[in-house]
Design a binder for these strands. Sequence first.
DNA 1: CGATACGTTGACGGAAATCAACCCCGGTGG
DNA 2: CCACCGGGGTTGATTTCCGTCAACGTATCG
Lengths: 246, 246
Amino acid sequence: MSEASLALSLMLRQFESISSLSDADRIELARIPLRVRRVEQGADAVVQYEKATESCILISGVLCRYKIVADSRRQILALHYAGDIPDMQSLYLGVMDHSLCALTPCVLAMMPHKSMKQAERQQPHLAEVFGRYLLIDAAKFREWIANIGRRDALQRVAHLLCEAHVRMHVAGVATGGAFNLAISQKDFADATGLSPVHISRTFRELKERGLVIRRGQLIEILNWPDLQRVADFDPTYLHLKPEAWP
Amino acid sequence: MSEASLALSLMLRQFESISSLSDADRIELARIPLRVRRVEQGADAVVQYEKATESCILISGVLCRYKIVADSRRQILALHYAGDIPDMQSLYLGVMDHSLCALTPCVLAMMPHKSMKQAERQQPHLAEVFGRYLLIDAAKFREWIANIGRRDALQRVAHLLCEAHVRMHVAGVATGGAFNLAISQKDFADATGLSPVHISRTFRELKERGLVIRRGQLIEILNWPDLQRVADFDPTYLHLKPEAWP
DNA sequence: CGATACGTTGACGGAAATCAACCCCGGTGG
DNA sequence: CCACCGGGGTTGATTTCCGTCAACGTATCG
């Protein structure tokens, strides 16, 4: 399968997990021209204050949205996996209030906003789908706030892993009790508001408790029910269709 | 002015601060029937898992969106002031993934989703305005994440006050260097991910540094430029129209 | 092979949580 | 009128979690 057609099928699956698409919707989405773009690890795909004219589908790799605060500390706002559209909001919001960085080498499919708007006009239902996608994006931010604000280190990391596990399964980029998350402990730290050193200790504790093992890039979930319990994970906020969640 | 017409003018001002309305838009918005509802302090206006059929304009009081995590700790996700529409997203997202609580006695104007959808149909531009409003909502969540994740107590409280100051001015519910924020230190704590005791100490430090004084319900800003500097406050994320910000 | 990035571990320090006492103030009721 | 109460706020003492620093190990790569 070519990268562009892979991007299309990932996007379709993504939308079908939260909404329903008609054949006409699918055809219209397929009309959006895709330009493949590679971003090397550590490079920014989009930077804050930029004015965007296209959005991207993440075909492979892990990408994050982040902000830098005063003393150049980084806070990661969201992690994105294959199938995600991390900068959809730029379709409606002119200027970026945060940046996108490739935490691993990434392959993106760029969609011109012009074509996306055109698709919306042809199939108004697509506007609803895009809107729903963005609102669920916001719901994830809300959970992220609760995670950082009111959970301790163990719960934070556990919760992040729970969300990653579910989302990667729904997107069809992971199966079984393990998944690939090739990001560094520094990245985990910036995502959870902790320090890299403490992330190391936290993964040790997760292992000691028999919940999760991190082996290089692989996250192996040893005890899914207990992990959810420890993390206080309730996937309601992902607003998935019941069928989508295996 | 009646409460309902006050609600309308607050809503119009809110939308005009981030977008532009035509006369037709304004007329269509004015057609939405409003039902006034009072919520006493400490009561929930909307609760998690509920299926909403209307959204509200906050006419007066302070309202918050919050989540409860495992050990019944509360995390406030957003503060809302007069003119805000705190549950706009329920227009598109069936089930609530968080609750709304009145931190002070509140007066709300309830808008049936049916009428809002009708307004969108009559004036498609309104759908864009609603969408933009929701995307800016999400942008505030992102900044909230950065605030809690990577700033210390002093910066967090300072940032929260900066945002409140700007938003209340833009909404026209505050003027000059002081504003009314009748919420308890427990509420500040749950908003910033800190403890009430530490909020008390932090306000003391803000006063000692000559930045802000909190006198009962009144927040007096003593040194706005320095407060912004300490808070690392950059209002880009509010996506205001240049004219809106005095 | 060094060079470099990433991860681990231990020692130490610091920011904020917790605990507890106390204060102030507004309401209530004898 | 004043005693009593309760909610919020303040303050100090103590604890805890996590950050920082530093040393060391390990893997990858030119």
